[in-house]
């Protein structure tokens, strides 16, 4: 609750300025028509729910309005890294 989130563009800002966007790296499929119903359903409905490090999307909606990714520990709320859309998930120990 009330995280201090380091926007890659604006620096640390209150959580109230951000909008949560769920799991990161769930790309829109290249060719949805080629997918089976099950594969398409996986894209639509299935998300990870780990206890621990989770790569997730945030939008600085009441600030610069940029989307970015964060690696957050879901148990402690610690944000280990933030990175821009399109960049790979950072490796953390």
């Amino acid at each position: 609750m009330m995280l201090l989130i380091p926007c890659p563009w604006c620096g640390p800002r209150d959580e109230a300025e951000f909008h949560y966007g769920g799991q990161a790296h769930v790309a829109y499929p290249e060719n949805p028509a080629a997918l089976s119903d099950e594969e398409w359903a996986r894209y639509l409905f299935f998300r990870d729910n780990p206890k621990g490090a989770f790569a997730e999307r945030w939008s600085h909606s009441a600030g610069c309005r940029r989307w970015f990714n964060a690696l957050r520990d879901t148990a402690t709320n610690e944000i280990h890294a933030v990175y821009r859309v399109g960049e790979p998930r950072p490796v953390t120990s």
Partner: peptide
Amino acid sequence: LDWMEEWLQTEWP
């Protein structure tokens, strides 16, 4: 507007 910006930034930059 949020929806449009989300797709532009995250899928179709």
